[in-house]
Design a protein around this nucleic acid. Structure first.
Lengths: 293, 293
DNA sequence: CCATCTATTCCGCATATCGGAAGCTTTTGC
DNA sequence: GCAAAAGCTTCCGATATGCGGAATAGATGG
């Protein structure tokens, strides 16, 4: 049972009153927290949608409360009610919000064509990870055509920083003091999911720093492997990572250097776009060059 | 009955040419509304971030209130505080939410490669629009290399359904009764932005239905034009639209048929992916749970 | 070093929120 | 087709919750 990839990890540290333990589902007390809990719940059941009473039960709230909160959420565009099926889904307005979220320099937009290209070239799934606190978050993903895929990391999914090649690549290229902070905080969280031994972790980090990429054959899943390179800012610190997830056979001694080479080249391309001298013109923009298709 | 239907009515679309209207009014009354108002405000200032007092002033709230709400939002991962600059930004968790939002059948994932390909082929900006209530929402976008671009529609942006080629293409292929409902509701909203005349609108819709694509030379912006095709479900009703926005010169009599042809082909490809016989295997097939790439 | 602005804490008051109960609608079961 | 069950929505009083003024602490800048 692996760690949770979903965002449910953030249980508030505030367990004030005893209250009901049990499921410990959700919530907090403020209506804002409850509203957000509803949104998170909807996110997990968006394919089918959730009914009002389902939500109430899952979050241990009463129907009237859920009704009132949902009404607000719908009015605000954060949720949508399918009148026909009486089911609620996340609202599209959230989409507009998130298009801006946690996306420094429009990293996602910049990287998207590159991800597409990489997944087509390498025929494997490519991930774009960024750091968020003590986690790495999957900012984007592009599936390759290879029939066996690591499903790892839906967009928005989190991993403990240091677990997995992508987040290891990020960690290796953080500021030294930040890295120390992360190691200190994350070591306890890694129990059972990855590295337990601090010495080993530090050795790995040093190796990644040295090589410029992360690739450990002993993946979390038997038979699966990954290789990742950091995306560096102009100071040489990681802002993100490009990661390939595939079966171990496809990262053998012969192919690995090729993949690493390609990844590094694309990463450098991203860095270049991230650090233009003039931050305004981010696109090449060949003036008037556009002939008919 | 009636009351709760007007989901999308309140919020103005944010597409005025650069006119960014300060996030909007006071949050309302409930703390949930206020919290969401803060998120929306953060979305408009994400590049730079917003300070606590800025938010307080913009939303007409007191600093303590904003402070408390922000604290909750940060705890819940919906906002992030840059301790260094004392500025708040949207949190990455929003990203995880929105990856699921308003995205039936993972339309976005399916379409992304196609958008990329289209923008590369046509050298213009391609939009993917879906219907949301009485609006069309930009679900994705891929910029083409042509130096002059239609600014229309950031991701998440809304347009009144019926205004613009993309939303016209959707409207033309709705269920008849839905279309009537939309027309009735939207006609008043179109004053000044587009069609005012119901007869003309109906003529246009009929033409689009007939031709299978929407392309009016008289765009909203002088000199700019668009061409769009619907993305149909297996019943022949629109679930989305693919739209090209460019300058009128690039959609002349010679090129237009070519573009339309390409668009139609890609749209059909999307429809095919949308309507697999087995709706289950749409997802890549998760193998176990757990680790990052 | 003081002046100014901002972020954070505290606390009493009032209001917004909660949930039980009951009406109303839709679905289920027969 | 009817009765029963489940779900959705409205109402309303009690109370917890969130609000904002005032005060404190921290940052900024002259």
């Amino acid at each position: 049972m692996s760690a949770d990839l979903r965002s449910t990890a953030n249980k508030g540290a505030n367990e004030g009153a005893g209250g009901d333990e049990a499921g410990g589902e959700a919530g907090g007390k403020s209506s804002l927290q409850r509203g957000l809990a509803i949104l998170r719940l909807l996110a997990t059941s968006n394919e089918t949608g959730a009914r009002l009473t389902d939500i109430a039960r899952a979050l241990d709230l009463t129907p009237p409360t859920v009704h009132r909160l949902l009404k607000i959420l719908v009015e605000e565009g954060m949720a949508e009610a399918d009148k026909a099926t009486k089911r609620y889904r996340l609202g599209i307005d959230l989409f507009g919000l998130a298009a801006q979220a946690g996306n420094p320099n429009n990293l996602r937009d910049i990287c998207r064509p590159i991800l597409l290209r990489l997944s087509a070239t390498l025929r494997d799934t490519i991930f774009l990870l960024v750091r968020s606190g003590f986690d790495a978050v999957c900012l984007d993903r592009s599936e390759g055509p290879f029939p066996i895929r690591s499903f790892t990391g839906d967009i928005g999914g989190r991993v403990t920083l240091g677990v997995g090649q992508g987040s290891l690549a990020i960690m290796a290229f953080l500021h030294a003091e930040e890295r120390e902070e992360v190691i200190r905080f994350n070591l306890p969280r890694m129990q059972g999911v990855g590295i337990i031994d601090e010495v080993y972790l530090r050795t790995e980090i040093a190796r990644v720093r040295d090589l410029g990429y992360a690739s450990r054959s002993t993946g979390l899943l038997p038979g699966m492997s990954g290789v990742a390179v950091p995306v560096l800012d102009r100071d040489g610190h990681a802002v993100a990572a490009l990661s390939v997830g595939t079966i171990s056979e496809r990262l053998n001694e012969e192919r690995l250097p090729v993949v690493v080479d390609i990844l590094k080249r694309e990463s450098a391309a991203i860095s270049r776009q991230l650090n233009p001298f003039d931050p305004v013109l981010r696109r090449p923009a060949a003036i008037l060059g556009g002939g008919p298709a």
